[in-house]
Design a protein around this nucleic acid. Structure first.
Length: 333
DNA sequence: CCGGAATTTTCCTGGGCCAG
DNA sequence: CTGGCCCAGGAAAATTCCGG
């Protein structure tokens, strides 16, 4: 049995499809009796409003795509929660893609968004993303909002945080507590975000006349185990280190584990600061001091921009940058 | 009988029109 | 006026058509 359409409803109660449509959308002038009959027929036939057909008619779409490099990363989960909250409030729908840092998967996803008549996309672009491709897509009327990953802010709308400042806050905090041997663990070398954070770190060292030691800088992928592994090596080679700033909280969890494994105490022997202020960070033992970047807010703001672009907002590209905050917990003593 | 061309179907909307 | 219908219109798949 085929799905009921507006025509079935119309036939069932002896009116035209136009009338049914007007009842369903609360437009036009419909008598109360007709309205009731139509609604009853809808219930009787189990008719479900076909939004896709309506969008086709309107030449618009309520579908928004989201590309993330890693949905298992709690930072992105938070961001997605913010975005999907907002879209839901606005009766829009989210299409999610987990691109895993693959440029191919990313562009394939954009192709399917286009063919699904989606209205736009929020992207946390993969690290080697080709901006020309995105710009072409955008110039053909498919709005794109870049989020989190700071690349090409001047050619697209952007929502994110100030990574430079975030690491300045973290570094400053540790320096004020008297630390001189502060390491930086995590992130992958090609990441622009990482360079910004490193920049913030170095600027504060310099400001306080602390020599920069490149052996204190270690990269690793975004996982606990990697963070732990790298930290074990680091601490064995450099026992003078008294503080570690992790590129992100997940890595910080690994850092803390490694410190414990080496028989030292987090917050007493070695201070740890994370980045992202993921929910779990308040619950670790000791709780993790972290840089909060309001991932939810970033998600919401991205949603606001993409929907307004989809409605034809032609203003120049804008950047919304949420200032990071230092959240002090026990991991720094 | 084939392959490409033309038409219909699928869904819904809304301006304009018409009959009480 | 009021209440309701006609019909075009939009993309692509499904179907029909038609000349060779």
């Amino acid at each position: 049995m085929a799905k009921a359409t507006i025509a079935d409803v119309a036939k069932y109660c002896g009116v035209s499809t136009a009338t049914v449509s007007m009842v369903l959308t609360n437009k036009g002038r419909i008598s109360a009796t007709t309205r009731e009959r139509v609604l009853e027929a809808v219930k009787e036939l189990g008719y479900v409003y076909n939004q896709a057909a309506a969008n086709l008619r309107h030449k618009r779409s309520n579908l928004v795509g989201l590309v993330t490099p890693d949905i298992t990363n709690p930072f992105f989960s938070e961001m997605i929660a913010g975005l999907s909250d907002y879209l839901e409030e606005q009766d829009s729908l989210l299409f999610l893609a987990n691109a895993e840092e693959s440029v191919e998967r990313q562009s394939k996803f954009i192709d399917s968004l286009l063919s699904q008549n989606a209205g736009g996309v929020v992207m946390c672009p993969a690290m080697e993303t080709n901006l020309d491709f995105l710009e072409t897509v955008q110039s053909r009327g498919f709005p794109i909002v870049l989020a989190v990953r700071p690349i090409g802010e001047d050619r697209f709308d952007f929502v994110g945080t100030n990574n430079f400042m975030g690491l300045q806050l973290a570094t400053e905090h540790l320096i004020k507590k008297g630390h001189k041997h502060i390491a930086f663990v995590g992130g992958v070398e090609i990441s622009k975000t990482r360079s910004h954070r490193l920049g913030g770190y170095m600027s504060k060292l310099m400001e306080h006349g602390i020599p920069f030691n490149e052996r204190y800088i270690r990269s690793c992928s975004a996982s606990r185990s990697e963070g732990a592994k790298v930290t074990r090596e680091l601490l064995v080679q450099h026992p003078e280190i008294t503080a570690i700033i992790a590129y992100q909280d997940i890595v910080a969890f690994g850092v803390m584990r490694a410190i414990k494994d080496l028989g030292k105490t987090v917050g007493k022997d070695i201070a740890v600061v994370g980045f992202d202020d993921v929910a779990e960070s308040a619950d670790t033992n000791p709780a993790l001091t972290s840089i909060s970047v309001s991932a939810r807010e970033i998600g919401r703001a991205a949603g606001e921009i993409i929907l307004s672009r989809m409605e034809g907002d032609k203003q120049p590209y804008k950047s919304v940058v949420f200032p990071p905050r230092l959240v002090v917990r026990r991991s720094c003593g």
